[in-house]
Amino acid sequence: MSAAESSRVLPSIPASPSLIAGVLRLLAFIDELPAGATGALNFGEHGLILLEARKICWAVSPSMRLRLTDILRNQSTPPLPREAVEEIYRRAKESGAPFGEALVQGGLISEAGLRAALFKHNGEAIAHLASSGVGPVSFVSHLRTGYDPRFSFSACEALAMLGSLDDPARALAAQLELGNTLVQDSFGVAFARNELASGALVIAVDRHCDVPVQDLIEICNWTSGLFDVTHTFDPDATIARATWAGSLALVAWRAKGIGYVSLCTTRAAAARVVSRLENASRSSGVIAAAPRYREGGQ
């Protein structure tokens, strides 16, 4: 098995245009639920998704190949002993605590490791539910699901997880770029062009990205077009900033074939993102070494 294959996030789910369209429909359905929607989205015999405040806490489909226990055991090298995992599972079942969180409390896995494992598990379940072609049959409201918000995921994160399948190394690099560039009061998305998605394929988002997935894709597609048309009169233009609704702004940039958008809730945040990008470009030689005078003229 090659390194690329071994690092694939969801080895049992081949990404395809129909799968991406199905996942988009499913996630758009979640987006349209009320902001505080907490409960079970049922797909009949095909599975369910548990939501808390419209965030995905747990998803399951009987046709899944990977089980959370296996994913969790393989988070460590060497894999966690099956007996230790089973003991924690038994105790969690007795106390009613979520199994993964019990593993964290038991010191067998880190918070980041659990989040990554749940991300993988829920992503695979959503892909299976989407590929079943069956829509949700009911939504049953609960007071709460009992899941820790640290281990829940927005629809945008689920979309990015699926998009990362196409090239996991590229998705990881995009995630790092977002982490190095975003500032307070901003969140962001990375996308690539791909025939699978017939437009922008979302490959990474940061944890604060929680907007309707259709709108996220619309913004990515617009950004992609922006750089296409900009290329006709200034091929060196790599950063753009657009403002709307008073103080909101988006900052778009491209690097190494990946497009990025930072959505900023203040103009100051947008200015800081642009500044970071210019500094990074200058140090890499993309933008000439002459300093640009900052907003405000200082």
């Binding site: 200034d234 233009a237 753009a240 657009a242 609704a245």
Partner: peptide, 17 residues
């Protein structure tokens, strides 16, 4: 956001030159 939300009010593009 607040104010006119249905269109961009300003676009800036930055390049080397």
């Amino acid at each position: 956001g607040h104010g006119d939300a249905h269109a961009f009010s300003e676009i800036l593009m930055f390049s080397e030159n």
